[in-house]
């Protein structure tokens, strides 16, 4: 179908060795609607891969397919060579952690408790051990707390460990969600719009954070709308449009790809020079505001119709 322009030569010093994530022909249908159509994507170890696309392109649906929240209608997802189970908690246990587009912290738990919940898959203490409280329980609990505090120090929230997570400012909630995901010791971290609603400074800080996570040896797959963030960060970028992968490659390739521009800005109609179109759009906009204010549609309306044709 779509051309797959995978360019490996742009990879950074840490060459991608083994494939961490290998999604093949992932298709997700909801009734008659195909949200994701036959998408292939691989993420190598030590790689940061970006996934971009206009709103409604199916990025989050694809993420949900990867993490077992949805079971793909067709295709399979392999993590380090093994096919992922279809339950989201098993996916996390296997080594894929994620954050959510709209923050989903456990609001009424403290910051530390949130991270401790992230440790769930890496600890074994069940009900009996909690009731009996043998030395093993105390050891495991202390180890979990130490590890959680390390993570909080890593993201810079150690001094707020006892705060309720719902009381944190927005940017710190985003960071905490990343720390909670990291607590499950993943091999692959999926970030769903980690900088949504952030100011430029916070976005810069998040960039640093993602690089630091990559340096810990964790592969990262990130959805984002902030193009500067994506092209600074990612070794490879895949573009998803209407559920299909349009193009994949390094930031240069993607930025210059006409189809990507078209997907975001709309098709320039054939033969029309860019300047003329821009002028027309400007006229149409002026006309539209004029129409709204004075009630006279005039030539702007016909220009708009011409555009449609």
């Amino acid at each position: 179908m779509t051309t797959d322009t995978t360019t490996k030569d742009t990879a950074p010093a840490t060459a991608p060795g083994e494939t961490v994530l290998d999604a093949r022909g992932v298709t997700m249908r909801f009734g008659g609607l195909t949200a994701v159509r036959s998408v292939d994507l691989t993420v190598g170890s030590g790689e940061i891969v970006g996934l971009i696309g206009p709103n409604g392109a199916g990025k989050t649906t694809f993420f949900n397919c990867l993490t077992g929240l949805y079971i793909p209608t067709e295709g399979e997802v392999r993590y380090k060579g093994t096919v992922l189970p279809a339950k989201s908690f098993k996916v996390t246990a296997a080594g894929i952690a994620r954050t959510f587009q709209n923050i989903r912290l456990f609001g009424n738990m403290t910051v530390l408790e949130n991270v401790l919940v992230g440790r769930h898959t890496r600890t074994k203490e069940g009900l009996w051990s909690a009731l009996v409280r043998g030395p093993g329980f105390h050891r495991a609990e202390a180890a979990s707390r130490t590890r959680a505090m390390e993570l909080l120090e890593f993201i810079g929230l150690a001094d707020k460990a006892e705060h309720l997570s719902r009381n944190l400012p927005y940017g710190e909630q985003r960071k905490l969600e990343i720390a909670r995901a990291l607590a499950s010791e993943p091999g692959l971290l999926l970030l769903d719009e980690p900088t949504a609603g952030m100011n430029p400074q916070e976005t810069r800080a998040t960039e640093e954070l993602v690089f630091a996570i990559r340096d810990m040896g964790i592969a990262v797959l990130v959805i984002e709308h902030d193009m500067r963030f994506i092209f600074n960060l990612c070794d490879r970028v895949a573009v998803l449009v209407q559920g299909e992968k349009l193009v994949e490659g390094d930031s240069q390739t993607v930025q210059q790809d006409e189809r990507v521009i078209a997907a975001y800005l709309g098709e320039p109609f054939e033969g029309a020079p860019g300047t003329e179109e821009a002028a027309e759009v400007a006229a149409a906009e002026a006309g539209a505001t004029g129409a709204a204010e004075t009630g006279s549609a005039g030539p702007a309306g016909s220009a708009g119709k011409e555009n449609d044709r």
Partner: peptide, 15 residues
Amino acid sequence: VAIREDETAALAMGI
């Protein structure tokens, strides 16, 4: 408590 707070997020945390 995590399940009570947000079941989907709790599942995504491996619970």
